[in-house]
Each structure stands twice: as C-alpha cells, then as structure tokens.
C-alpha cells in the first residue's frame, strides 16, 4: 500500500468495522443492529431506497450523528470512545465529500483546499499552495479554478473542488455522499472515472453512498444494500443482484437497472 504502508495490514483487514449499530432520531429508529465492514483498498457502494439511512450511516461513521448503541471501529480504534485526541488523529486520516461539495463560500477553491493543510500540517505557505495546486489538478480542475469562489463554479466543478479538499491531507479513506447526484451523465461518468483512477493511484479506500446505478457498475468493488434498518446484502455486484429480496430485485431488474447493467456488461 502506498498509504498507510506503516500500518502493514493485510489486504483483508477491515479498515472500518461497525457492529450492532443503532441510530435513531427521537423515537424513529434508522438503523438497528447493523453490521458492516469496509475493507482496505476497496470501493464500497452503499445503496438503498429513500429514507433507509444511507447518509445517516455515513454520518454515524464520521462522527456527525452519534449512534444510540453499537461500535464503530476505525483503524482498529473505537471511534466514539478514543477521546478527543484519538478522534482528531482518526479524522485526519479520512476525507469527506459532501453532496453539494460543502465548500466554504467565503474562500476561493485553493484557499478551501489549503484550509485543512494549514490547520493540521506545519508547512510554509508556499508548500501549502503547491500541495493545494496538486490536489486541485488531481481532482481534474484547471489551474485557474484555484482563484475562483465556489459561487462561480458549476455543480460538477464544485464537487471536484470538494474532492480536492477531501484529498488535501492524503487520506486513507474517502467518504463520498452521492458523488454523481446532480451531475449530467457526461460529468457523472467523468467523476466515476476520476474516483476509480484516484483509488488506484493513491490506494484509497472509498465509502460511497449512491443512487446512481452506473456508478455502482463502474466504480464499486462491493455493494451494501440497506433496508429494514440494516445491511440486508453485501458483496460483489454480481452476487448482490442475484439476492432474493423484493427491493433488490426491483432495483436491478427495473428498466434503469437493466439499462445500466447492459451498458457495463
């Protein structure tokens, strides 16, 4: 592995493992007794119908929604029990791309990418700028995008800028919330390609919440299906789509599922 070479973990090790997760909003239970493993070096796609808690699951892992019960182990440590310093150390090792990019609107793209670098690394402004320029270019943006404000960018460019910021600290895990939502088909396909490229060249582990069937076919090594408050099926696409569950059948055998399957066959 390029990243985390010092961890010397074997390829099968779970980088994130969730056991018995329960989340709820007031009395509405979103997940109950949910188990999920994210393996090092894979792209895991999380799918499910509206309201099954895909985004909530992601937020529970990254610490934005505290679970009512269960454990979230990240890099072998219990994320909700390691204390402030341990949490910060973990957070520096992952990057998150929110749905709309979530760029800071008062900063330019380059300043957005430099924000985590300046905060967490002891580097000179010059080096920080070089690192930001590298990430911006790697995310597929032209150099002149660096001086632009988020409001001057298109939706697709905003997502790329968000990805550049998520990659700023060379994370081992990247969380993507609906990365292709709101992009036109060409932009979405390019973004899929970018994710696979980055994963291959940087050795990233990717946790991706998505609706997009094309993304699933193009990107994901494994797919987890959320329904009935838990993960009802997880595995490679071919296995999952053969599973005997009403929602899964409808999802993959519906007209969109068939079309996406054919174009990637």
């Amino acid at each position: 592995m390029l990243n985390g070479g010092d961890q010397a973990l074997d390829a099968d090790a779970a980088i994130i493992s969730i056991r018995g997760l329960k989340t709820q909003f007031d009395s509405v239970v979103i997940h109950d007794d949910l188990d999920l493993d994210l393996m090092r070096g894979e792209i895991l796609g999380v799918v499910g119908g509206s309201g099954t808690g895909k985004s909530v699951l992601m937020r529970a892992i990254i610490g934005l929604k505290r679970p009512t019960a269960g454990t979230v182990r990240v890099f072998g440590e219990d994320f909700y029990r390691v204390g402030e310093a341990g949490r910060l150390a973990i957070e520096r090792r992952w990057g998150v791309l929110f749905q709309g990019g979530a760029l800071f609107s008062s900063l330019t793209v380059a300043q957005n990418v430099m924000a985590p670098i300046r905060e967490h690394l002891n580097v000179s402004d010059k080096l920080a700028e070089e690192m930001a320029a590298l990430k911006i270019s790697m995310a597929g943006l032209p150099p002149d995008a660096g001086a632009k404000y988020p409001s001057e960018l298109s939706g697709g460019m905003r997502k790329r800028a968000g990805l550049a910021r998520a990659l700023a600290l060379d994370p081992e895990i990247v969380f993507l919330d609906e990365p292709t939502a709101g992009l036109d088909p060409i932009g979405a396909a390019q973004f899929d390609e970018l994710i696979v490229n980055l994963k291959n060249s940087l050795g990233l582990t990717v946790f991706m919440v998505t609706h997009d069937l094309d993304s699933l076919y193009a990107d994901c090594d494994r797919i987890a299906v959320l329904a009935e408050n838990r993960v009802i099926e997880i595995g490679p696409l071919e296995e999952v789509r053969r599973a005997d569950h009403a929602w899964i059948r409808e999802y993959f055998a519906g007209p969109r599922g068939r079309a996406a399957g054919m174009s990637h066959a």
Binding site: M138, P143, S201, L202
Partner: peptide, 16 residues
Amino acid sequence: LIEHVEPHLQPCPVEP
C-alpha cells in the same frame, strides 16, 4: 506515485 503526480505539477493562483 511519483509518476502519477508528474502531470499535476502546475501552479495555480490562490487569490482572485
């Protein structure tokens, strides 16, 4: 990795 970053080594403006 060194090869991968090579094409991305271009400066970019930070401020408008």
